[in-house]
Amino acid sequence: MEPALIFDLILLLTLISLAWLLLASTDLFRAVVLFIAFGLLLALAWVRLGAPDVALAEAAIGAGISGALLLIGLGQLGSSERDRCPVRPLTFLQHLSAPVLIGVIIPSVTVILLLELRQLQVVTSGQQGLVQNLLSISGSDHPVTAVLLNFRAWDTLLEKGVLLLALITIWSLDQARPRFENTDIPPLLSGFGQLLLPLLILFAGVLLWQGGYVPGGAFQAGALLTAAMLLATLSGYALPSRWTGVALRLVLVAGFLVFLAVAAITLLLRGEPLHYPQRLAGGLILLIEIVATLSVAAILSAALAGGHPVTNLPPAATPTTKIEDKS
């Protein structure tokens, strides 16, 4: 057997067993570390699948941010919840459904799919040829960027909406709490932060810029900036409270709003949303990408903070009439 094939098989087996171990783990911290390892190996899998764009995003999110997010979340749980998953007594149906699901349905669906997938004759030449033919007028030299920001920009616009929506959801649930002790920061850590922050920002810029012709782009760059924000927070920096009002909200929505505005203007002038004029396509894509990078970074950082910024409620919000409890 070829070493590459063995590599893929081992990677696949490790990924599946990792997934199983982390689902079955009753120790939450162990599950988090397994998840971090899972992210690492998933990035390798994307590399093996020939999708470096996804691998870049998975590396930035999986290695940097989701691990930190879960660790922070774990720190917020009470110690009894943290050590063990609460085990609830199962009803009869749940007792029955778990073995049926795990023992019968999932394996049989998997086996059927694997059998069927052998018949799959992947037809990509048509689409790829089409993308390559139109690449020159798309405003980007990298096919992935051309698809994401021109050919299927409508999808990407809505995906940016998903990201913003996720943040609004987080804000609607809770207010941000301090996640880290701000005293006693080891001097080594601040030095490390000072060394790494400029590099992270620089490399985010590189990723953003090179998205025009090779793998990279707004999301990957934004994720790196988020890691920079996280490191800054860990080294004891905090956003001044006067910036957490409208200014912060503007940065959060800017990526989606600019994209939406481009859609609205093109719809108004050309009758189709996101139908860029050919001359302007490159410039528009760059504009959208730059603003999106900042917004992605802000949204992911705000998600790490875990809630809306603590502000003084405006006078209108103070309860003037008592309404009886509805529950």
């Binding site: 990035a43 870049l56 930035a60 940097g64 930190a68 490390f192 590099l199 790196l224 890691a227 996280l230």
Partner: peptide, 9 residues
């Protein structure tokens, strides 16, 4: 990227 973010978690 892995090297840059190695320490974050």
């Amino acid at each position: 990227i892995f090297a840059l973010l190695a320490a974050v978690a």
